[in-house]
Design a protein around this nucleic acid. Structure first.
Length: 288
DNA sequence: TATATTGTTACACC
DNA sequence: TGGTGTAACAATAT
């Protein structure tokens, strides 16, 4: 499940690998992932240069040289893998063979680049999407009216976080942390890890947090997300980076997916509950 | 076959 | 009005 650190990892790698390349062709194995008519999509991006890759919340933002921008969301099981072995469709006799590899079993869309190489969008669950928008409309789609602040930018200050908590005093803290309209990019895994770091129960209403809990949560947001980026994300489920490699933050997960196991901080046992339909893991002994 | 999963939206309620 | 909570939906593996 790619969240902010995983998408950030993919973003950095794509910048190293496909920035400056031009799109030579697109092959759709399942066109439903593209949210505009496929022919229109292909027509609009053909021959365009990839100007770079950015991230907003969990969305990859790829401005093109022709005034359009591609938006890609991996949702639960999306993967974006750059593979240098592919050649443009005209000369792609190896295409069929490569696509038979297990890692491409759920390949949905392939972007071929002029010269060589391709970007393969895999998605088992088919929840992921690709959208194309005029670059000028970017703020209407992913601006701060639509999505909460980026938690790692300098303007996400302790004061700002406290004012958010004040605005939604009845929301349970885990659900507040993972609400994309309130704060961008934090999902099920990191919200649990941040609550554990802060020693706060995920069900605690934001308005009932002590001052030191509020500060520890703020601290945890920054520290845990940065550390996870450093380790190239968490590979629970099927997450891999743009080279198809797993992330190492799973080794540092303290509560997520550890139901019934011992707490790393106290003699408690990690518990799982349902919160808004999602699994939530925490230690009932040391989280208050 | 029932269940698990996320972002988004619709809707009811206060 | 806007904060809040719940449910439904997309699709598929296990």
């Amino acid at each position: 499940m790619p969240e902010l650190p995983e998408v950030e990892t993919i973003k950095e790698e794509l910048n190293r690998r496909i920035k400056g390349k031009r799109i030579a062709g697109v092959k759709a194995l399942w066109s439903g992932i593209v949210k505009i008519p496929l022919k229109k999509f292909i027509g609009a991006i053909m021959d365009a240069e990839i100007m770079g890759v950015e991230r907003r919340a969990k969305i990859l933002v790829m401005p093109l040289g022709n005034g359009f921008t591609i938006l890609m969301h991996l949702k639960m099981t999306g993967q974006l893998i750059y593979d240098p072995r592919f050649t443009p469709p005209a000369g792609g006799q190896d295409l069929r063979k490569i696509l038979q590899e297990p890692k491409y079993k759920y390949a949905r869309i392939i972007f071929f680049f002029i010269g060589k190489g391709a970007l393969i969008f895999n998605d088992l669950r088919k929840f992921a999407y690709i959208k194309l928008i005029p670059s000028g409309n970017i703020n209407d789609i992913i601006g701060k009216e639509k999505l909460g602040p980026e938690p790692l930018t300098p303007d996400f200050t302790l004061e700002k976080f406290k004012s958010i908590l004040k605005k939604y005093p009845k929301r349970r803290i885990k659900q507040l942390l993972m609400d994309p309209v309130i704060i961008a990019g934090i999902g099920n895994i990191y919200s649990d890890e941040i609550c554990f770091y802060a020693g706060v129960l995920p069900v605690k209403p934001a308005g009932k947090l002590s001052n030191s809990q509020r500060e520890r949560l703020y601290d945890g947001i920054k520290k845990i997300l940065l550390r996870a980026i450093e380790l190239r994300g968490s590979s629970v489920d099927n997450y891999v980076d743009a080279s198809g490699k797993k992330g190492d933050y799973v080794k540092e997960l303290k509560v997520y997916d550890r139901e019934g196991e011992s707490c790393f901080r106290c003699p408690g046992i990690v518990k799982r509950i349902k919160l808004g339909g999602r699994s939530s893991y925490f230690c009932p002994r040391c989280q208050k």
